[in-house]
Each structure stands twice: as C-alpha cells, then as structure tokens.
Design a protein around this nucleic acid. Structure first.
Lengths: 246, 246
DNA sequence: TCTAAGTTATTTGTATGAGTAAAGAGCTGA
DNA sequence: TCAGCTCTTTACTCATACAAATAACTTAGA
C-alpha cells in the first residue's frame, strides 16, 4: 500500500474542463456565495428542488455541498436545510476559496486585507529563509532568477520561473503551515497579476528588487531579506491596485 | 430567502456525538492520514471494499472522501483510485486539519512551526488592533479581562473569557483573512492548553501580561501592543512545550 | 524492433428510489 | 406559562444500476 518515492511527476488534475460534476457545482455555488448572491443566513433550496434546478443528481449535488461545508461556507442540518454560514466561519485562506473570491470580483477591502497579511507574513518568511537556506535552495533560486531575467514576466515560462523563485524561498523557510499560507495567497493573487500583464506594462522593472532579495538570502542577511521582500510585496500591491482600477 | 439579522445565537453544530456518518468517517481518515498511518502517495482501498470494511454505504464513504479532498488531503481519479496527496498540498491551516493534527499527537516540529507562525502573525494583529480598536472593542476586552481575573484560567468560564479577549483583539484588527488564520490556530492550540491546565499550575501568572497588552491597545500604542503580544505568545509556547513533554 | 493507434478492464463518477433519523413547530395538558 | 408529546419537514443513509474516464494492454504498421 505504501507509495513509491517517485510520485512527484504525476499528471496535474487541474485540466480545467475535466472537472467532475460535483466539483463544478461546488465551484459555481462557492463563487455565488463569495459574490454575495447568497448571503450568510440564507437557506438554500431543498436538495431535491435545487438539484433538479441545476440538472444534476442529488448525489452529485450533495457531494458539492459536502465540499462547501468542508470549507466552512455552508452548514446543513435536517429540518433546517442548508444555510450559508457567517462570514467569520469561512476558511478564507483555503486555496479554492481564494480562487473563487477572485473569480467573484473581490471587494477592495478584501484585496487590502490580503496584502496586509502578505506584508506581515512574507517578509518574515524571507527572513527565515535567509537564516535557513541550503546550498540547493540557493542554486534553485539562482536558476529561477536567471530564467526570469531571460524571458521576462510577460511570458509563460518567465512567470513560472517567478513562481519557482518565490516557492523556493518559502521552502527554504522550513515551515509547513507558513508555506501553505503564503503559497495559497500568492497563487490567488497571481491570477490577477496575469490580467495585469495583459493590459499594461509593469509600472517598473521588478528584476532589480528580485536580485536584491536574492543577494540578501544568499548572504544570510536576515534584515536585508526582510526589507527586500517588503519592497516586493509593496510593488505587487501597487500592480494589483492598478490592474483592478483599470 | 434572505436571512434575518439575528442568527448569531443558533445552536452550535459541534454536539460531539451527534456527528453524521460522513463526518465521522472523514474525521477518522483525516486523523489517520495526519498521524501518518496513510502516507503521501499511498492509495486507499477501492470504494466498495473500503466502505464495506468501514461498515458504511458507498454514498457516505464517498461524501467523506469529498471532504478530505476539499481539504487537500486526498485526490481521486477513475482507474487510479484515491491516493493521499503530498504534504505540501495539505491545507494545514484548515481548522479541522489542525484539530485532527492535535488529535494525532503532532510532531514537535509541527508545534514549533505553528508557534513560529503565531509569533509572526499575532503581534502584528495586536499592533493593528491598537491602531483600529473602537470603543466597543475596548469595553469588550475590559469586560473579558475582568472575568478572567475573577475566575482564573482553571475554570471553564475563565477560559471562555480568555478566548473572548483574544477574539476581540482579532476583530479589532479589522482583517478577515488574518482573523481566520489566527483563530483557527489559536483554537487548535488551546485544546492542548486545556490538558496543560489539568496536570500542573501555570509556570507563571498570565494576568499581568494580559493587562499590559490591554493597556497598550487602549492607549493606541502600536509598538507596546506588538511587544506585549509577543510576550504572550512566548509564554504560551513555554506552556505548550511543558505540557507536551509531561 | 519500435511506435502509434485502438481496445479492454478497472475504478471512480452519476443517477434514482426507498427508507431512516433528526429537529423545529405546533399542540396538549397541566 | 410551561413542560412534554406528536407531527412533519428536511437532510441523511443505503442499495443498485449504469456511465465515463483512464491506465494498461494489444495490435497494426513502419
């Protein structure tokens, strides 16, 4: 039953269109909830009625509800039905919820809150990385940085290198929960970054700041790494604000 | 369909024993995975076989799997079956996962990681609270502090006041994602705190530190609030380490 | 011999219908 | 007024059948 070691290269399950029914329904309802089309306290139509409305079986619908319930969005009980829970009980850091939130045109304050959190967490992560990075981490970061410089953030491969760069930093911080937190937020925000790239050039070249951060981590300079990452997040916020107002 | 405003006082759904079957199965499997009884890459037995083994219907079992899948613990595909995902894809900040992790006797490094994250996030939250707290926040915190002092942390009501105190601080920070993060971690860690209280008195009286934090927030002194909360987290870490080694 | 297209078998996914259990609403009686 | 009972609605569980996806195999062709 034990899995063999080489399972990293399995095919990605996110083949977009290949979502199962329960997944699509969960996604649709999740987006609707995050968009406010169903507000906290609202009770959804009954299983039979709603599943018929959505043209899916009760089985598939129920599995979708289980997914939403696992993320804290809804809560179902006999007699009462399934109702949307208070916002304070939503798992706002769940990767899916973050993705859905951005699909639903998130509010300005939500974006602000997320960046406020990034501003708290990511500089600290960079500081830890400067303290704990291994030789392998450094060489990976160096490679990613090189590719970023070569291809630029306008290309798919360049963006992948950017993600790899930041991901390596998180890994170097050697903290699982911290990594889970940062990577889900970053992934969600990056989605908007792609749109940003499409409509306008970057306000300023991000490479110098990336190089400063890289040098700080290589040198093991904790405070410099913290400062450099703070600058990068500030830059990302500026970009995001720009792209949302456009 | 709109919910009425006063839905805060609904009955809590955590009536322990009253868990539905799909919930229990999800919980059991979740704990087993977090305990390492199923490792990343392992593939679970087929639906029919496993559900029979667990003496539940395939429907209930599948709903349990959907829950685990929503939290990133497993991933199922036709033909391949359901397998445990790599740890890096687990939503380690999901409240249920945290709870299950503590049920499964978490590793020392996991505890250390969590407190490292708290050390990053909570002082920052306290700083924000000092900046943004309203009069209502202050009066709530004052009330909670008073009750804490009166009943002590050894009583149920005293601990509730403690939680209310910290919760109000988080609310005062006015940041939804930040609140979701801190409160799930705190809730999970508090579980261990209860055990701690049972076997030994606190290493030192926590009230003075709480009062210092309270005063800082009332005064709007951002840096003092940050420092005071840092001290509180440090204290909590010491307590937790003590209780885990016992 | 190797590659590529097609076939097969296995596993999860979806659908349907029947019956169970929980929990709020209302009724009854004190 | 209130405690307890009944009633009724709703989600929950189960069993069964069939569909869809896909890894593994098989075969045709170069």
């Amino acid at each position: 039953m034990r899995g063999d070691p080489g399972f990293e290269d399995i095919k990605l399950p996110l083949a977009s269109g290949s979502r199962r029914i329960h997944g699509s329904v969960a996604r649709d309802l999740g987006i609707a909830i995050l968009a406010g089309r169903y507000a906290p306290g609202d009770v959804l139509p009954g299983e039979i009625e709603f599943s018929e409305q959505l043209k899916v079986s009760r089985t598939a619908y129920r599995e979708a509800v289980r997914i939403l319930s696992a993320k804290g969005l809804v809560e179902s009980r006999p007699r009462t039905g399934t109702r949307v829970t208070q916002r304070s009980r939503w798992n706002l850091l769940d990767p899916d919820i973050l993705a859905w939130a951005f699909e639903a045109e998130p509010s300005e304050t939500f974006i602000r809150d997320l960046f406020e959190l990034r501003m708290i967490v990511e500089p600290a992560a960079a500081a830890l990385a400067a303290e704990r990075r291994s030789g392998l981490d450094i060489s990976r970061m160096g490679h990613a940085l090189e590719e970023m410089g070569r291809y630029g953030l306008a290309t798919e491969i360049g963006r992948a290198a950017d993600q790899a760069f930041h991901n390596t930093i998180l890994e170097a911080a050697r903290n699982g929960p911290l990594m889970a937190l940062s990577s889900s937020i970053a992934a969600a925000v990056t989605w908007t970054t792609i749109f940003k790239q499409r409509r306008s050039a970057l306000p300023r070249d991000p490479m110098p700041d990336h190089r400063i951060l890289y040098e700080a981590i290589v040198a093991g300079d904790v405070e410099a790494a913290r400062a450099a990452m703070t600058e990068l997040v500030r830059l990302a916020l500026a970009d995001t604000e720009l792209s949302l107002k456009a």
